[in-house]
Amino acid sequence: MIDMSRYPLRIALYQPDIPGNTGTILRLAACLDLAVDIIEPAGFDLSDRNLKRAGMDYIAAAALTRHINWERFLEAQAAQGRRLVLATTKAADPYTRFAFQPGDTLLFGRESAGVPDHVHERADGRIVIPMANGQRSLNIAMSVAMLCGEAIRQLSV
């Protein structure tokens, strides 16, 4: 069992659907000593070869917790007293102006659809990566890296 209180910052992926991105995020988390939550159902099997190729041998070092659904994830969040910070293109506050706190969980939606309204409603904070006009979104692994980098900078983790 992973000691979830050990990690001052967590990455949560809501029903991820691209295994290569998830593998890249797991690799990032292992390298930065961050924990990852995957909220099922994922759009792929976690034994997927694309996941393994992107994550390489780092996946074994990643602190990964799988939650069978959104409700179970919320129970784990509440038990740890963590704040939920949602990265979304629908937010107004840029991530660089957001005050991250120890214990934050950075939540990212599905690559294909983001998160549903009921997930938006549960977030304690909503942040956006400002982009050039006419552009929709960045690759999720890049977004995770950018937000984690800023949170780590602020927290000096």
Rank of each mutant, 00 (worst) to 15 (best):
T105C: 03
I2Q: 07
R10P: 01
R83S: 13
F44E: 07
A29T: 14
T105E: 00
L34N: 06
R72S: 15
T22P: 15
R72P: 00
S112M: 06
S137C: 14
G81F: 10
S47N: 13
I25A: 03
I59S: 12
I38Y: 13
F98T: 01
E40P: 09
R6E: 04
D117V: 14
F73Y: 15
I68W: 08
I129N: 07
S47C: 05
P130A: 09
I2L: 11
S47M: 11
N21R: 07
R72M: 11
A78P: 06
G103N: 06
T96C: 05
S137W: 08
F100T: 01
A92F: 01
R6P: 11
M146F: 09
L86K: 11
L155T: 11
E71C: 06
I18E: 10
T88F: 15
R110Q: 12
G109M: 09
M142I: 04
Y7Q: 09
P116G: 09
L107Y: 10
L84Y: 06
T105N: 00
I127V: 15
I39E: 02
R82N: 05
D17K: 10
L9I: 14
V119P: 10
R6D: 10
N133E: 15
A61I: 00
P94C: 05
M56D: 08
D93Q: 14
D33C: 01
A99F: 12
Y58Q: 02
F98R: 08
L51G: 08
I38N: 12
P19K: 14
K52E: 03
R83M: 01
A30L: 07
Y58I: 07
A12C: 11
L9R: 02
P94L: 05
T96P: 00
E150A: 11
P130S: 06
D124E: 02
R126F: 05
I127T: 07
A76I: 00
D104N: 10
L84R: 04
A141E: 03
R53I: 00
L106D: 03
E111N: 08
N133L: 13
L64E: 02
A151I: 04
A92Q: 11
G125S: 10
L155M: 11
G20E: 08
M131D: 04
A132D: 08
A42L: 07
S5F: 06
R49A: 05
Q135E: 11
I127N: 03
L147E: 09
L106G: 04
L106H: 05
W70T: 01
P8F: 02
I11N: 02
A79C: 07
M56A: 13
F98S: 00
T105P: 02
R10W: 13
R72L: 09
E40W: 13
R97E: 11
